[in-house]
Amino acid sequence: MDHQESNRLASVVMRAGLILLESGAEIYRVEETMNRICRSFPGVSQPEAFVIRTGVMFSFHADDRIITRVVRVQHYDTDLAKVDEINTLSRRADRMSLEQMEKALDRIDRQKGYPWQVISLAGGICALGFGLMDGAGPADLAA
């Protein structure tokens, strides 16, 4: 793996980790997925991901070099569809090229979540359901 490919791989791995973390994935899942993607490419060894809620640190050995990246996370959301898609992508990484991985991450990153109206409606329905289970009266349910 040449120097340019190593840098592209580092970018792909970091991007996957960031999308996962920004989409609400558990920290252990982000680390595991980043390591899995990295190990799927030949010429790479000793991948190490260290993830905290506000940042991602990652390094791996490629030939005679150590490639390291550190990124601060600034945006948080919950989009479990993105988490699922990146986990699926990481399980197929051994059958994909770096270019295919980049295109797949572009597609996943561009996906939009549900509009706020749908989220508000779903939240209201859930609250109504819990109110009914809790024995709330009509005035309580209306509120």
Rank of each mutant, 00 (worst) to 15 (best):
Q74M: 13
T68Y: 11
D94M: 09
Q100M: 08
Y76M: 12
L9R: 01
L80A: 08
R53L: 12
D63A: 09
G55M: 06
A62C: 12
A49C: 05
T88I: 15
Y76H: 11
M1T: 10
D79S: 08
S45F: 04
R15E: 06
T78H: 09
C38K: 03
D140H: 14
K82D: 00
G131D: 07
D134T: 10
A104R: 08
L80W: 01
N35E: 15
Y114H: 14
A10G: 12
L128G: 05
E99N: 14
F58E: 10
Q74K: 13
A136Q: 14
S59E: 07
Q46V: 08
P138S: 06
Q46M: 12
G129Y: 11
A104M: 11
D84Y: 03
G17L: 02
Q4W: 11
A142S: 11
Q4F: 12
I19G: 01
E99W: 11
R39S: 14
L20P: 01
G124S: 08
P138G: 05
S59Y: 05
E48S: 15
I52K: 14
D140T: 15
E32K: 10
Y28W: 14
I66D: 12
E102L: 05
G129E: 05
I108C: 02
V51Y: 01
F58L: 13
M96E: 07
F50P: 03
L132E: 08
K82T: 00
R39E: 12
H61Y: 13
S23C: 06
G17S: 03
I108N: 03
I52T: 15
L128W: 11
S40F: 01
T78R: 09
R92Q: 14
G24A: 04
A142L: 15
W116Y: 15
I119S: 12
G55C: 02
G17K: 03
L21Y: 02
S59Q: 13
I19H: 00
L18C: 09
M1Y: 10
S97I: 05
I52H: 11
G24I: 06
S45M: 07
E102Q: 11
S40A: 13
A136T: 08
E85C: 10
V44T: 05
Y76D: 10
E85P: 05
F41V: 09
G137T: 04
G17A: 01
R107K: 09
V83D: 00
A122H: 11
G113T: 00
A136C: 12
G129W: 14
I67H: 05
L141Q: 06
T88R: 10
Y76E: 11
E5K: 07
R69E: 12
R91Y: 10
R36Q: 10
V12R: 06
L21Q: 06
E31V: 12
G123D: 12
V51L: 02
W116L: 15
D94C: 06
V51W: 02
I67T: 08
M57F: 14
D134Q: 15
T88E: 14
V70M: 13
V118H: 12
L141H: 11
I66Q: 10
P138I: 09
W116S: 15
L21M: 06
F60M: 07
P115V: 02
R36M: 09
F58V: 09
R39H: 04
F50A: 13
V56C: 08
G43T: 01
F130H: 08
A104V: 02
V71S: 07
E48L: 13
T78A: 14
Q100K: 04
T88K: 11
A104E: 10
F41I: 09
H75D: 09
D79Y: 04
V44R: 00
R36W: 00
